[in-house]
Design a protein around this nucleic acid. Structure first.
Lengths: 189, 189
DNA sequence: CTGTACCTACCGTCCGGTAGGTAGGTATCG
DNA sequence: CGATACCTACCTACCGGACGGTAGGTACAG
């Protein structure tokens, strides 16, 4: 809610995305916020606290978004479609945050790292449970569930790397390509 | 060939993989090599030169490996299988280097960056040409070739993140899972 | 008169990189 | 053969600068 606290996150997100966490300095963030370096420490206890905040809210939002998109969806196949669609859309719409969430884990303290990994596990378990049910029901291929889930999630993450807003394809176009490709790979013939 | 020059690369690869390029210091590399910081500069002109060397040889080896694995393979489907298998195996066997190659582009100078991106494009074009031929022949699904290629390559890269040598599955096991999954997603029914 | 949101000025540390030196091996040449 | 020159592979000592972070102060709002 406070204006500057949000602005710091937005600016830091942009810089961490473009240059990386360790290559970004506090004074650089402050400069783009129009304040002095020391003023950052009024809002956040440390540089790592900013990174953790980005990780934490991104993972929470990602999981909330998935749960919302699965609400009221019936059938294993449709659940899987909804899950992939949700995953891709979120990654394209929140490109910078998800990129940071995927690449800047090493900047976290061990305690924060553990918390974020726990959040990620929660998310992955929702996906893996759907795949598991599909495999058990015999409609999905009989492969290692973890490998399948990582393969699907990661291929969608790729979108967040090359996607340029306002390009040739819309978010929905891309999401549907990934939904078709993932489901085609998953369903038994 | 010289002993220490190689050792620096090996140590740097390990550190860049574990901590990231910017979070790794020259003195840390030197310490693990058993020499003084200044001696690093006898072998390499700068920290970035070490990173570039890792990127460069990794990309060259990756492309050479792919070309070797495609040698004498006939048929679009078999080419694609061989390509995916090659890609996965290389990424699992050279886990650290490929991880760096995928995540530490930002540490390169603009000139070196351009050279590495060019190498990567060359590699991707080989894969994309196979997919293109498959699509044209009507045996692969009619989707955007670039998206398909990125999806397949990226999902395989994922292996390099979670794979632990000596674990439950061998490199070949994993490679075959990815080959089946990718081909299943690619082939029309 | 208290809390908020900032400021200036500064701290110690570590960084990438450089200067200059040296031990020991090897090649060149009278 | 010995003397000289040079090269390789390292060393110690240092530099300027940037970093994350802190101390202490201030303008202003309620």
């Amino acid at each position: 809610m406070p204006h500057m606290k949000d602005k710091i996150i937005r600016v830091a997100t942009s810089l961490f995305h473009r240059k990386g966490y360790f290559a970004t300095s506090i004074s650089e963030i402050a400069g783009l916020c129009g304040i002095q370096k020391a003023s950052i420490y009024y809002h956040y206890a440390s540089k790592e606290a900013i990174l953790y905040q980005i990780h934490s809210t991104t993972m929470d939002d990602l999981t909330t978004y998935l749960k919302g998109n699965l609400q009221g969806v019936d059938g294993i196949e449709d659940c899987m479609r909804a899950a992939v669609r949700s995953h891709v859309r979120f990654h394209l719409e929140r490109q910078k945050e998800t990129f940071i969430a995927n690449t800047e884990l090493r900047g976290l303290t061990p305690e924060h790292y553990a918390l974020i990994v726990a959040k990620r596990d929660t998310y992955e378990q929702i996906i893996q449970e759907i795949i598991q049910r599909g495999c058990a029901a015999g409609i999905f291929v009989d492969e290692d569930v973890k490998i399948l889930s990582y393969a699907i999630l990661t291929q969608c993450n790729a979108g967040a790397i090359w996607y340029k807003p306002g390009g040739r394809l819309t978010v929905d176009d891309i999401a549907e390509v990934y939904v078709r490709f993932a489901l085609q790979g998953l369903m038994v013939r």
